[in-house]
Amino acid sequence: MFHAGRPEEAANQALIAHPPYQAPLAGDRTMPSGAVFQDIPVSASIFPRTALRLDAISKAFGSHTVLDEISLNVPKGQIHGIIGKSGAGKTTLIRIAGLLDKPDRGSVFFEGINAPVHELRGQELLEARRKVGFIFQSFNLFASRTAGENIAFPLEAAGWPSAKIRARVQELLDLVGLADKADRPSSRLSGGEKQRVAIARALANHPSILLSDEATSALDPETTRSVLDLIRNLRDMLGLTVVMVTHQMEVVRRICDSVSVIASGSIVEEGLVSEIFAHPRSAAAKAFLKEGQHE
């Protein structure tokens, strides 16, 4: 099995050293279809490959600007945190990255797809969605299905034959430590079990990216830690790239390699978790660290 391991220190440094990518035509918003992911001017020998790239994403609801030209590069294998207060725009950002919402302006790129994924349609859009798993604060399991049937759904949608689905579901249940809960109705699982099923469901189609929108916010501290550790182990085992939106400093401290601090629709600070903890520069980062001390 492919084993990514933790990114090297050099790779982490690269994340900071590497300036946000500016597409040649980023200014006029009409990116030609010829713009490909490989255009990223990053030498693979020096920098890690980027798994997920957000390019000058803007989004407004009515007259309220939620995201203001946010750009983000997440290197392959990294666990990247996005921390911010509620209303800072972080949920909107990750929903756009997960192809659940469309940006007003800007582009989303996934590794291995030679087109801005947010512009894809039909079968191509479904294929892009199989590259990314999404987990939610409220788990969003299907109440009409058992744990196993929840995990089977993305495989049914991908047209797998039922024998293969059964084997894959069991494999995923083993992976998240719920091997004996396949036939349990999803509403009769505990919060932590529900999120484990949701993680298994998100990983069913072998995505390379896992996006988490406050996945541990509804869980007690102990369950939060076990779910976070699971996510880190899965990253190590499967070479996943993970983006975790959170308002809990605990999440960033426990599993993130790097972090973006987001405040009123912009990234105000970004870098290695260790550096931001040691030398926070922005007021938002300082506020989070202060809050974290009371935990």
């Binding site: 929903r95 997960g98 999404f134 939610f136 069913a204």
Partner: peptide, 23 residues
């Protein structure tokens, strides 16, 4: 949120309707 989850499972609209929403 359940519809969001079904969408993120890369299912078509028709499948979401008949395999998730109606059940």
């Amino acid at each position: 949120g359940v519809i969001d989850a079904a969408i993120s499972c890369a299912a078509s609209k028709t499948r979401i309707l008949f395999a998730i929403l109606i059940p």
